[in-house]
Every structure is written in structure tokens, then in C-alpha cells.
């Protein structure tokens, strides 16, 4: 079997602050294959964006990678010297940020920014680079690219600017694109266009995409697999339709219950009580235990590790045979784990 495009192994990211060490990412592992879209969801502060920044080597100080490995097509990239890592960025890993209005330098024409990126990573001459830039703009759906290429960023709408940003990320045909909330700042109608574009580009170029968002709708629409993050760890990772329809982890169940749907008589959205703990107040045992309706004794003591379970991996003691009577054997769903008084 060929190597996955991106393989993250037991990644740990720490922020050293005056109040002590904060573990923003605590033992995260996942793979993304060629042409695959992995959605990463979670509440703000769950570590989604930090994971993306760690992969591309742009964690802001005082944060640093404290352990684990990041492999890009089988090659370690987390320990590269800065200059080598710079050459990976933009060439082998492209990144798209949340706000297209602020991602582009307002003082340079988009042609200058595109050509700059292309000539940094390839041997093309400026003339050839310009031709490639026009092709890229056409590919991301900018109308009349030969004319528009000499415009300044402020002369484009938000959606068009995000297309330019995507073109910039594609300059050197990267193996992996990290899209950090690429649609959050856009109108709903434009969001769908950008998502469609990303999906098409991933399919046509075989690019692996790591799609970071808190929008479950976007994930359900786009991703092949989804990783649900909570307090710096992966709670559950599995095929997107499975996770959306039959979430295994109680937190994933809560998240899916909070997606509004048009159909269904029960119009009330289910909330998860409480809020995610701050990084310096993560409770012992399972980080989710204070908010969990299925909690039992082991949850407040033992930290659950992600274990394989029916094609998913899930970090919950309910799916660990060692949990004794609480173990949900083959064929039982979360509902069976409800405490008797609540189920009644």
C-alpha cells in the first residue's frame, strides 16, 4: 500500500506561557490519502486550527511541537530546518485561510502575488509564470482572467478573493491543501460555490484536503472522512456518513444533534450542556466527562485512547471491552448506554 499523503502520528503541541505549559494538541493521529478530503470539526479552541498550523509548520510562538511525527508522502516534515520547511510550504502543502479580505496583500496586484509564488517554487520565467497564473485563475473560476489578473485585491468581491487565495495555494500543484475555515467569512450562496470548487480541484488533481471548520453542513457536503476534535484530542474519526448518521462518541452525538434540519417534527435543537474546558482546566480522565450523559466511574479516572471500532476510531470507554458492564458490545448503540432513570 502506498503511503498516505499526510500522516500525523501522536502529535503534541504545547504553548509555554507564564502560567505554565498548555497542551493545545495532546496525542492526535490521523491519515489523509490521495484525493481524500478529511473534515476536522470541533468547537472553538478544540485544536483544529493549531493542528493545521502544525502540519504546515507555522505555529505562532510560544507554541511548539512537543512530540509526535508529521509525514508528508512518507517523509518527515516536522523536524525540517526552517529554510527546508519554507520550501515545503506553498510547494507541497498549500494553505487557505478563513478571511479572503485580509489574506491578500492590499498593495500588490494579484498578478504580482501569483507570479511571486510561482517563481519561488518553480523554474518558470516571469512570462511563463504569468501564463500559468492566468490558467490558474481560469481554473478557479475567475471570469476574463487575462483582464482581471492585473487588478488589485480590493477590486474583487469576497468570494472572488477566496478563489484568488485558492489559486495562490494551487500555484505549485501541492500534494496537500489545508483549508482553515475557508467558507466561514463568506455569504451562504458563495460558500457552496467555494466548496464545490474545492471538491472539484481535489478530485481532478488528486490533492489531499484537510478541511478545518466548525460547520457540520460543510463537512457533510464535502468530506470523505471526518475527525471530531475535543480539547486537543480526536474523539472520533470515521467515514463522514457514518459519523453524521450514527455517531459513536457521546460528544459527536451531541454535535450532530445540534445541526439544524428542515425536515423533522422535533424542531428543537439539542444542546450539549456546559462548555469545553479551558486548556489549563482539563479534568482528569476523559476531557468530556463533566458534560457527558453516559459517564460512569472509569471516565473520571482513565483517559480514553482512540480504539478502532467498526471502521471508526473512537476515544470512549463505552467501546472498550475493559469497561466491563458498561461495554457496548457488537450491535448495541449509544441509546443502550443511557442510565436507566434517564432512558425511562
Amino acid at each position: 500500500m502506498s503511503d498516505p499523503v499526510l500522516s500525523v502520528r501522536d502529535l503534541r503541541v504545547e504553548f509555554h506561557t507564564r502560567r505554565g505549559v498548555l497542551k493545545a494538541i495532546d496525542g492526535v493521529s490521523f491519515d489523509i490519502g490521495k484525493g481524500e478530503v478529511l473534515g476536522v470539526v470541533g468547537e472553538s479552541g478544540a485544536g483544529k486550527s493549531v493542528t493545521g498550523s502544525a502540519v504546515i509548520g507555522l505555529i505562532d510562538p510560544p507554541g511548539r511541537i512537543a512530540g509526535g511525527e508529521i509525514l508528508l508522502s512518507g517523509q518527515r516534515v516536522d523536524n525540517l530546518p526552517p529554510e527546508e520547511m519554507r520550501k515545503v510550504r506553498g510547494k507541497r502543502i498549500g494553505m487557505i485561510f478563513q478571511d479572503p479580505l485580509t489574506s491578500l496583500n492590499p498593495l500588490y496586484k494579484i498578478s504580482e502575488q501569483l507570479i511571486e509564488t510561482i517563481t519561488t517554487h518553480t523554474d518558470l520565467s516571469p512570462t511563463q509564470a504569468r501564463r500559468r497564473a492566468v490558467d490558474l485563475l481560469a481554473e478557479v473560476g475567475i471570469p476574463a482572467p487575462e483582464k482581471r489578473i492585473d487588478s488589485y485585491p480590493h477590486e474583487f468581491s469576497g468570494g472572488m478573493r477566496q478563489r484568488v487565495v485558492i489559486a495562490l495555494a494551487l500555484c505549485a500543484e501541492p500534494e496537500l491543501i489545508i483549508a482553515d475555515e475557508p467558507t466561514t467569512a463568506l455569504d451562504v450562496s458563495v460558500q457552496a460555490q467555494i466548496i464545490t470548487l474545492l471538491k472539484r480541484l481535489g478530485r481532478e488533481h488528486g490533492t489531499a484536503i484537510m478541511l478545518v471548520t466548525h460547520d457540520m453542513g460543510v463537512i457533510a457536503e464535502t468530506a470523505d472522512r471526518v475527525a471530531v476534535m475535543y480539547a486537543g484530542r480526536i474523539a472520533e474519526i470515521g467515514p463522514v456518513h457514518d459519523v453524521v448518521q450514527n455517531p459513536l462518541h457521546p460528544y459527536a452525538e451531541g454535535l450532530m444533534g445540534a445541526i439544524p434540519t428542515l425536515a423533522g417534527e422535533d424542531a428543537r435543537l439539542v444542546q450539549i450542556p456546559g462548555s469545553m474546558p479551558r486548556l489549563n482546566r482539563i479534568p482528569p480522565g476523559c476531557a468530556f466527562n463533566p458534560r457527558c450523559g453516559y459517564r460512569f466511574g472509569r471516565c473520571t479516572v482513565d483517559r480514553p485512547d482512540p480504539l478502532p471500532w467498526r471502521g471508526h476510531r473512537v476515544a470512549c470507554h463505552l467501546y472498550d471491552a475493559a469497561s466491563g458492564p458498561h461495554f457496548l458490545g457488537e450491535g448495541k448503540t449509544l441509546a443502550a448506554a443511557k442510565k436507566p432513570e434517564e432512558a425511562a
Binding site: 507555522l58 519554507r86 510550504r89 496583500n105 511571486e116 517554487h121
Partner: peptide, 26 residues
């Protein structure tokens, strides 16, 4: 600290170019 500087880094632009071309003019 601006987003477009971060984005320029993510594009793999050399740090000198970021400082003198992208940051200084702004």
C-alpha cells in the same frame, strides 16, 4: 501580525522578501 503576512509565509515566500516587500510597504 497581519493575515496576509501569515498567508505569504504559508505560500513559502522567503522571510526577507516578506519583510522588505510585503511588510515594509504596508
Amino acid at each position: 501580525r497581519a493575515d496576509f503576512i501569515r498567508f505569504a509565509r504559508a505560500r513559502g515566500i522567503p522571510e526577507r522578501t516578506i519583510e522588505f516587500r510585503h511588510a515594509l510597504r504596508n
